[in-house]
Amino acid sequence: MQFKSHARTLAIALSLAFVAGCSSTGGTQDGTVDRSRDGAAGTGVAGTGQVSGTGMGTNGQRAGQQVDGRIPEVRTIYFDFDRDNIRSEFESVLIAHARYLRSNPNARVVLQGHTDERGTREYNMALGERRARSVERFLGVQGVSPSQLEIVSYGEERPAVRGHNDEAYAQNRRVVFAY
């Protein structure tokens, strides 16, 4: 239902505009924006009033990239508790992504780092970033250009699975390739 989804986005955007003080500009002004690092040029930030409804497909299901070759199907790798090293069983996954990115130099991927729920939220934000950087380093060694990679840590904010048990935690400690 394309219509429904648009309507929903509109409703949420409008309600946010309402919350933002009914101002005709939507209430958000651009502050300091600095994305000068490698790999960030041109990605920019979504503009004024762009709130919610745009987050679909962050798990790598957005298969709209029209480039040669196919994006590897396995787009999530998992980590041990309190660790950021790449487990040997996932090296082949990373090598497949490295091969794809090397042969498709226009392809770009966001490495989304996640943690389980244990510990404080902002500290987990840092741990999630550390995991994503670990993947970034691995891909770099495999010859992927830094300009194709961006890192976003979600910390513990987007668990893949709910639950306060080891199985849930194991599925939540992950890095997702979002093309």
């Binding site: 309402f18 003080g21 209430g27």
Partner: peptide, 11 residues
């Protein structure tokens, strides 16, 4: 409800 974006650096 007026707001400003204070920072949006990479990372």
């Amino acid at each position: 409800g007026q707001r400003v974006r204070a920072t949006s650096f990479e990372g």
